[in-house]
């Protein structure tokens, strides 16, 4: 995609100070390009450190290729950057250690996350990779809300939680698919552990 055709995500003109702000260009793994303000980027610890390390000037941003984010697709990245633009300038929350953790989902975030669970799953993975603390809080809150008023059996269905037998079967299948030599080493290790040896070597 050319620079001219790149979508600009929800830029609030009134919120932009008079002096010229820099807009960085990012590219998703399906080659969709996004222009994101410097202030919005600060919501993501990963991207903030990345652009700081790159030390781009305004000309660099326009002339150099867009920064590739290779493990996030365009649909998910669009949601992420929409969220960052809406919440730019807000303080990054610090975990005070209280439990249960109190998280409110603002109206904008609720609308943004009015998506299917598959996309919500990708959004959490993306927010985790980009280390966007508050987006993680609200998206995890949405997942946690799915547990409200459910019985254990319903929770198993909602969260696709396998039983012990299913976990065992999956482990066995994974072992069978493993390289035979690696399996031998693992069995030897288990045998030594059973015999009470502290060290494998």
């Amino acid at each position: 995609m050319s620079v001219e055709n790149a979508p600009v995500v929800d830029v609030d003109e009134a919120a932009i100070p008079v002096e010229k702000k820099m807009y960085y260009r990012f590219e998703s793994n399906d080659k969709k390009e996004f222009r994101v303000s410097e202030l919005a980027i600060q919501q993501s610890e990963t991207l903030n450190r990345l652009v700081e390390a790159m030390g781009y000037t305004s000309e660099d941003v326009e002339n150099k290729p867009a920064i590739a984010i290779e493990n996030i697709d365009g649909k998910t990245l669009k949601l992420v950057f929409q969220w960052c633009e809406h919440h730019k300038g807000e303080a990054i929350p610090v975990d005070d250690g209280s439990v249960p953790k109190i998280v409110e989902i603002p109206e904008f975030d609720a609308k943004l996350m009015d998506i299917d669970n598959g996309l919500l799953f990708k959004l959490i993975w993306a927010a985790d990779y980009l280390n966007i603390v508050q987006l993680l809080n609200v998206s995890c809150k949405k997942v946690a809300n799915m547990a409200q008023g459910k019985t254990p059996a319903q929770l198993r269905r909602v969260y696709l939680l396998p039983s012990d037998e299913e976990d065992e079967a999956a482990k066995r299948a994974a072992q069978e698919a493993q390289d035979p030599r690696a399996r031998e080493v693992e069995e030897e290790f288990e045998e030594r552990k059973r015999q009470g040896g502290n060290s494998f070597f």
């Binding site: 953790k101 299917d116 799953f121 993975w125 809080n137 969260y159």
Partner: peptide, 20 residues
């Protein structure tokens, strides 16, 4: 009901969800 593979999230986010 729509399902969500909770334990396939990154471990930190499984923890984050459970803490909420």
């Amino acid at each position: 009901a729509p399902s969500f593979p909770l334990l396939k999230l990154p471990l930190a986010e499984v923890r984050n969800t459970l803490l909420i």
